[in-house]
Design a binder for these strands. Structure first.
Lengths: 213, 213
DNA sequence: GACAATTTCTAACATTGTTAGAAATTGTAG
DNA sequence: CTACAATTTCTAACAATGTTAGAAATTGTC
């Protein structure tokens, strides 16, 4: 699974550039976390990194590109969280349920990343938000569900059926998470997470009964 | 169900004011429908109604208030659509499923309203988005599900259980609808609607099996 | 140490939400 | 019909934000 990365022989300058680029990303995320995406302005980011405004544009083509990078970063972090959950789970069923729990926790704990991943809270995404990282997340979910189906002796008709099943679970999680973040779930995040687990258990049971996804 | 509205004896001027206010709302929605919410600017709205910019502010305190009104309008229209679906359904089960179908159709056909209702596509909602109209929608859904439970001989433990069940179904629909609108569902709207119906049928079956919500 | 390349900054511009105050319109009374 | 008052609408600005041109400063190289 781990890929070999090219040995990075970088000059001090190149290292500094990478660090500054990362500082911009961190500052942006920090402002969004503390004050919301509405408050993220290029000038505030520049002020936070203690550089002048145009410096930002040496590192990112524009504000949208900056948000797009954080969008991808969110997918990377969520992927890591889900992989970890699956790795630690004792059974394939628990892998699915713990993954769902981890998904909710991620949305609560990294609200600003979750928002930029889904264009919430005033974030505007460019139309092309179907990137490699999103695909990797789908793959992870498909693997977890395929493992579950296999362990339960449930045959997966074809790739499309597996994909459909994953999208149902994902929609449930995203629906509950985004409604909870918008304060539209009575009882808040705690109830939303509990509902997610209940509904997913019900869906798994339905697939068991049908012996098919 | 129909409420008596106070007999409106209005002067010509008052009627014109109401019409202009509605024209502003219509113009805003039209721009959002054609070019997206990102393109909705106060000047464009003013130009469309052929009035100068400050006139808008005689009718709405600010842009946010204008969007808030369309937010509520979206909830009103969705409520009407769901009431109609339930009224026309031959059975309580079909009432639930047809309601789900109607929900999806509303999201596809009035994308801009669905977006402003949920703060998608760059729309920023004020924190207080839990208005009367949202409550009325929840009530409608609860009634439909309560009817279904009653017809199926399923006991509803308490109001909280009914509420939870409704929120699960709503989250499923909203998750699929918003992911589909964000072009994150392979197969698009058609597949998303089909998945919604399948998943809801599975959830209803789970409740039947448990004989409890 | 001088010159070229790169990095960073100052100062602007365009767009957008918003508002003050002038101008125009409308309603009213003589 | 006319003069005045209230209301409506507009012109012209302001502040905030994303973005960029071009100058200044810094860095690397011979």
């Amino acid at each position: 699974m781990l890929e070999i990365v090219e040995t990075p022989i970088l000059t001090r300058r190149e290292r500094e550039k990478i660090q500054l680029r990362q500082a911009i990303l961190d500052a942006t995320q920090a402002i969004a976390a503390k004050e919301g995406w509405q408050a993220v302005t290029t000038r505030k980011v520049a002020e936070k990194i203690e550089y002048s405004l145009p410096t930002l544009y040496e590192y990112f083509e524009n504000k949208a590109a900056l948000l797009a990078e954080l969008n991808r970063e969110g997918y990377r972090q969520l992927l890591a969280v889900l992989q970890q959950a699956r790795k630690n789970a004792p059974t394939p069923t628990r892998a699915v349920l713990d993954g769902a729990q981890a998904y909710c926790n991620f949305a609560w704990q990294h609200r600003e990343l979750y928002e930029v991943m889904h264009g919430l809270s005033g974030v505007v995404l460019e139309t092309n938000s179907y990137h490699t990282e999103a695909q990797a997340l789908t793959n992870e979910a498909q693997t977890a569900l395929e493992d579950w189906a296999c362990a339960e002796g449930i045959q997966v008709q074809n790739a499309s059926a597996l994909n459909d099943a994953v999208q149902i679970l994902r929609a449930l999680l995203h629906g509950l998470a985004s409604l909870a973040l918008a304060k539209q779930i009575i009882g808040g995040k705690k109830v939303a997470a509990a509902l997610a687990l209940r509904a997913i258990e019900d869906q798994l049971e339905a697939w068991r009964t049908k012996k098919s996804l």
